[in-house]
Simulated assay, not measured.
Amino acid sequence: MQISAAVVHKVDSPFAMTEAELQPPAADEVLVQIAGVGICHTDIAIRDGHLPFPLPGVLGHEGSGTVLAVGSDVTEVAVGDKVAISFNSCGECRECSKQDPAYCHKFMEANFGGVRADGSTTLAAAGNSLGSNYFGQSSFATHAIARERNVVRLPEDFPIELAGPLGCGVQTGAGAVLNSLDVQPNSTIVIAGAGSVGLSAVLAAVVRSATTIIVVEPHRSRRELAADLGATHVVDPADGELSAQIRAIAPSGIDYALDTTAVAAVVEQLAASLGVRGVLGLLGVPADPQASFNVGLFQVPLLGITIRGIVEGDSDPKTFIPYLADLHSKGQFPFDKLITTMPLSEINEATAAQHRGDVVKVVLTP
């Protein structure tokens, strides 16, 4: 079928709205009419050449919409269902069999390979194949092909155009708190970065009844939003040494620290802020894949510190997205306060606004 998609033709080039040909769904796939798709940092990292993906291609991995057609083997969703689309996984490896698909042994090829598992592409333009199947969707488009495995049915009354970020950014931040770190009630947590991932972590920390929720963020408007969403303290890193500012709030150190910035100096300051048996969670994607940070080898065993890498909030989308949707319906997880909607045709303006910090999370609507 003919669709409209935002194509990246080469590294560092802008998105270009393009008429494309979308293949019909295979046996285990579904065709989704996109209602909204979030812009994530990973999309920009691909555009800028920091992560691998075959170009020209179609990005977008926080899609949501309505199922228009299903393959012959699909049983979990039907035509007319509202769905959020999350990351792809093989469903066969050891981690997938343990319901830990975020650590799928084939994660990179399933999400960044640009083709289906059989090597075929779902998209073409002007007779030439496009990189497709990005995170099992390539949803910067009016329509997308996804796998039954990475679509999640949503309640009929859910605001479907806003649901896409539940599949990655919101899921990652909330999952880091609820799954990876398993933040306990009456505990202390510091979150570095008040983008959509960090602010989703704030919302989750409120759900877990953390008593001290500190957010580190240079943008004043985002610090104010963090406070509105439940942060008990906000810190401007320009006001002095970060660890000193945090310990002025929690003198004995923090129970949990979560970094979304992937800035080595920030990570080191978070580590210095941890108390006894503190846990440091790392989920940011650095621009330099060789980036590293220093943590004292004496500090780690002396205090019993844990350093934890986090992918997709250690989430199984099939169960975690419905959980977040239910919290939202009860007014306990207002992630919609992070979202600004813009037309898909304005994708370049939207990515620039998000980069500047004018908005937290843009959801593009075809």
Rank of each mutant, 00 (worst) to 15 (best):
G167E: 04
A163W: 04
D358I: 01
C90K: 13
H328M: 09
F335W: 03
A231L: 05
V79W: 14
L258G: 00
D228F: 15
V30C: 09
G357I: 08
C104P: 00
D255F: 07
A27I: 13
T351H: 08
T211N: 13
H61F: 04
P56V: 07
V207W: 05
A117K: 09
P25V: 06
Q290T: 13
I339R: 13
D12C: 10
P289T: 01
T261S: 14
E19M: 14
T142L: 03
I321M: 02
G127N: 14
S139C: 09
P14R: 12
A16F: 15
I145A: 04
S138N: 03
A205T: 00
I339T: 09
A287W: 05
N294Y: 11
C40T: 12
H9I: 08
V263P: 08
V300W: 09
V58D: 04
S345C: 11
A325L: 00
G80W: 02
E109M: 09
L22F: 07
H233F: 03
L297N: 14
T172Q: 00
G114V: 11
Q99A: 09
Q137S: 11
N348Q: 10
V300K: 05
V151A: 02
G164F: 00
G136V: 08
P185T: 00
S138H: 03
G296Q: 12
S329T: 03
K82T: 14
T142S: 12
P251N: 08
Y134P: 13
D48V: 15
A231I: 03
F140G: 06
F333A: 03
A262Y: 05
A287G: 15
A126M: 13
E312Q: 04
S329P: 12
D316K: 06
G284N: 05
H143S: 05
H9L: 04
F140L: 10
V266I: 11
S13V: 14
G275C: 06
I160C: 05
P25L: 04
M17T: 07
I249Y: 07
Q269V: 13
G167I: 00
I213M: 06
F87Q: 01
S345H: 08
L324Q: 01
T188V: 07
A141Y: 02
K330V: 13
Q290M: 03
A144Q: 08
A5V: 01
E95L: 15
V207E: 01
L327K: 02
A352S: 15
R222N: 15
S221T: 14
G113E: 05
R208S: 11
A84H: 02
G309Y: 10
S252Q: 15
V58K: 03
A102M: 02
G65D: 08
E312D: 04
G131M: 14
S120L: 11
V279Q: 07
A192R: 08
G357C: 10
L242C: 11
H50I: 11
D118P: 05
N348P: 02
A250W: 04
P366R: 00
N133D: 15
P289C: 07
S86G: 05
A226P: 04
I254G: 12
Q99P: 06
